[in-house]
């Protein structure tokens, strides 16, 4: 039987959650035995090659590109997991939700203390995705099946969740793995 596929992506995140995936250390060898990685920054596959069992999402949606990728993940993955607080609740990027978008653009490109922009132009390259009016947690854009809390969730948390799902067991994480105080 072919190994189930796992895909991962980082949307409006800091890659800390991906680091935490790598933090499972030598268990990554076991993981490779269990699964095959599909679209993911880990193997640099850019496009889905087929249907995936699990998609791990880091970060919420701050721009149109994030939305496109997330919807693509929803279309290709049986199970989607929001990994970390950014994906689950918007996290640090969502702090801008209190500031009108125009001001965000101006602060970034015109008024910020370290900005050097003699042309006084907000960049308008089609390569640059348009920002959304605010940062959305993933489950406000698509259905999410599981949420792993933490910033980032620990490697053990991610590992336990993945193994449970891949071996068809209920995801019941011990309290220590999901408590943060």
């Amino acid at each position: 039987m072919a190994k189930p596929k796992v895909a991962t992506t980082s949307l409006a995140g800091c890659f800390g959650c991906h680091m935490s995936v790598l933090d499972i250390d030598d268990r990554i060898l076991k993981l490779i035995e269990l699964v095959q990685f599909d679209k993911s920054p880990i193997d640099d596959i850019k496009k889905f090659t087929g249907r995936c069992a699990i998609g791990l999402i880091e970060g919420g949606c701050c721009n149109e590109e994030n939305v496109r990728v997330l919807q693509d993940f929803r279309a290709h993955c049986d199970i989607l997991i929001s990994v970390g607080d950014c994906a689950t609740m918007g996290g640090i990027p969502a702090l801008r939700n209190m500031v009108p978008l125009q001001e965000c653009y101006e602060e970034a490109y015109l008024k910020g203390p370290t900005v050097h922009n003699p042309a006084r132009q907000i960049p308008n390259d089609p390569e640059l995705p348009l920002l959304l009016d605010k940062v959305y947690p993933c489950d406000e854009v698509v259905k999410i099946d599981y949420h792993l809390p933490g910033c980032p969730p620990s490697a053990d948390t991610i590992w336990e969740a993945l193994v449970a799902l891949l071996t068809d067991k209920p995801v019941q994480l011990p309290y220590e793995l999901v408590k943060y105080d």
Partner: peptide
């Protein structure tokens, strides 16, 4: 699997106005 309450057009409308270009997506 989409959330019907999320509307991309509404969500990018501000940026379209500020940047002055339509979102292709």
């Amino acid at each position: 699997g989409l959330q019907p309450a999320f509307d991309l057009r509404t969500a990018v409308a501000d940026a379209e106005r500020v940047i002055g270009r339509k979102s292709e997506h």
